[in-house]
Design a protein around this nucleic acid. Structure first.
Lengths: 151, 151
DNA sequence: GGGATTGATGACAACCATTGGCAGGGAGAC
DNA sequence: GTCTCCCTGCCAATGGTTGTCATCAATCCC
């Protein structure tokens, strides 16, 4: 299968590792779902993913989409976030390229950014409290430049 | 009514302002709920609040608790957060004493901290993107010192 | 290869936090 | 007091997410 898009090689590798360690099986359906997820590549909800895949040849159940995303979460490969109320979105958790978010409270657009200085300070804080960090999320809410013009 | 605890005077003032501006009425039930919320004073879920108030003389409905918390959210006085899966928790949004969170993924304990340097950097980032910030949340997940000892 | 084992899947029901609808009660204005 | 309109309790509805279970398919063992 042509599933190993170069950009996400590390993702598939770590997934295979996890599956092996947890004694889980490979599956065609799951790989299709993950492939579509990686294609979208940002802030995807289970419903989004489901509606893009149903009526295709694979046509997975919504429950399977959830199961797949939860598997990725348990593998530590994605993060589940709650930007707007209601449904949650998932995004790839790339240890090599962490980023944070600016979320527009008006149009709900999400702008990503990275700031190394902030990362360093965060690690210092964690160290001060003897916390062993697994991951972190910094979300800044406000009105984006576009929406400021409109109002 | 003895509702004006000194520490939260600013909170009640801003609430009154908001109610007046939105042409909403005062209400006894709502004040009792808010008072209990301020007494608990950190990371309270609607269910928590409800179970502490039912079977008291006030005995509010769960829907009213939700309505009250949503009112506070609309007034910009509280923030709704989602630490663990499932239910969300509310906390006072004090513009004068912002803090962030260290959340233990093992025991779910939440440690607050404040770091002025990080705040400054955040404002710089927002400025760079022409974002008009309303609020932000920095949540760091990991294993706390206590849980590290246990395992 | 063939059969056994066990995880994966689809369909759908169940769950559960949260919200909506409605009828009756209370706050504020006059 | 009276009128208006918000507030409240009750309870049904909503909607994202998960559980159940029969069936399918990946992996293993011979």
């Amino acid at each position: 299968m042509e599933k190993k898009v170069a950009k996400f090689q590390w993702f598939w590798d770590r997934l295979d590792q996890y599956l092996a360690k947890a004694q889980l099986k490979q599956s065609r359906q799951r790989n299709f779902i993950i492939e579509e997820f990686l294609t979208l590549d940002s802030h995807v909800s289970a419903e989004d993913l489901y509606s893009r895949l149903k009526n295709t040849e694979h046509n997975p159940g919504l429950a399977t989409v959830y199961r797949t995303l939860n598997l990725l979460k348990e593998a530590g490969l994605v993060d589940q976030k709650q930007f707007a109320d209601g449904k949650s979105v998932f995004e790839v958790l790339d240890p090599k390229s962490h980023h944070d978010h600016l979320i527009c409270v008006s149009c709900h657009k999400v702008q990503e950014f990275a700031n190394e200085e902030i990362e360093v300070l965060q690690k210092q804080v964690a160290a001060r409290y003897n916390f062993r960090l697994t991951h972190h999320t910094l979300d800044m809410f406000g009105v984006c430049a576009d929406c400021q013009k409109k109002s």
